[in-house]
């Protein structure tokens, strides 16, 4: 089976939400661009994070070798997270005072911001060159995605208006399932 078309197709699929947003912006469909870009970009970043976490279990369970797609999904997660943060900075009018105030005073922003910094480290070390250079440490470093997933869960949960919003709960459950897959339960239960 030739794979030459699979990665470009995946690329287009991962880019599609961004193209949709671009279309909405230029077509004048957005009434409050700040909110209407902040929410979807944050959600797509989270979705792709979860999708990247799904790759390893799927790779083990199914006969398909799909691990080669993981990096692109991870990089797109960072791409959407960057857009998400950019809109926040625009909303704060790039004022250092406002940004710091929010990062320090608002726990959900503190958490989200920390998650972004960690995600940036992973994106920056995602090239072939860095994988080689870091060797064994690369794998250790990139396990940080588990922590980032937890930070994203808390960030999403805390920003919700109230318990009326079940979406963060659904994401939290999926995150826990995906993280649960990584735990060596046999070893745990023996103790």
């Amino acid at each position: 089976m030739s794979i030459s078309w699979q990665k470009p197709l995946l690329f287009i699929l991962l880019l599609a939400p961004f193209l949709q947003l671009l279309f909405d912006i230029f077509a004048g469909n957005l009434i409050d661009p700040i909110e209407e870009i902040t929410n979807p970009t944050g959600q797509w970043a989270f979705r792709f994070l979860l999708l990247s976490l799904l790759i390893t279990p799927l790779n083990k369970i199914t006969p398909f070798s799909i691990i080669k797609y993981r990096r692109m999904i991870g990089v797109f997660c960072f791409f959407y997270a960057s857009l998400h943060l950019s809109i926040f900075l625009i909303d704060q009018q790039f004022s250092l005072e406002y940004i710091l105030e929010d990062v320090v005073k608002r726990p959900y922003i503190t958490i989200g911001f920390s998650g972004f910094i960690l995600l940036f480290l992973l994106a920056a070390t995602s090239t072939n060159k860095m994988v080689k250079r870091l060797g064994k440490r690369w794998k250790k470093l990139h396990k940080m995605i588990y922590l980032i997933a937890i930070l994203a869960t808390v960030h999403f949960y805390w920003q919700a208006k109230s318990a009326t919003d079940i979406e963060p709960l659904i994401y939290a459950i999926i995150t826990l399932l995906l993280l649960g897959f990584r735990v060596n339960w046999k070893k745990w239960l023996k103790h």
């Binding site: 009434i31 409050d32 661009p33 700040i34 625009i90 929010d102 959900y108």
Partner: peptide, 19 residues
Amino acid sequence: PRWSQARERVIGGGSFFAP
């Protein structure tokens, strides 16, 4: 408790990069 009430975004006001 989760955000400042000191300022408000005027819907549709300003430009994309400077709402």
